[in-house]
Amino acid sequence: MSHSLARASRNVTGTVSSIDWEALSPAEARRLREFGLDEGVEVELVKPVGWLGGPAAVRIGRMTVALRRHITEAIKVAVPAE
């Protein structure tokens, strides 16, 4: 099953299946790569975007980063079917 990271369930680990780099600015794309985000990397939504907005907290490998909604929407993750 594959969907955007923005729609992922909290605390469920998935694997990045694709990233829509075109939806990101060059600076955002560069920072994501510096955070180690790439196809095949393990990610987990630690804290989703709140009802009033604000960033999400996402675990990438062994680090947790803050990402705004549009970035989590550009990341597609594959999660094992329940």
């Binding site: 600015s25 960033p55 980063v65 803050a66």
Partner: peptide, 10 residues
């Protein structure tokens, strides 16, 4: 202009 967003390591 467009903002730079918010991407930070916690």
């Amino acid at each position: 202009g467009k903002g730079g967003g918010f991407m930070m390591e916690l």
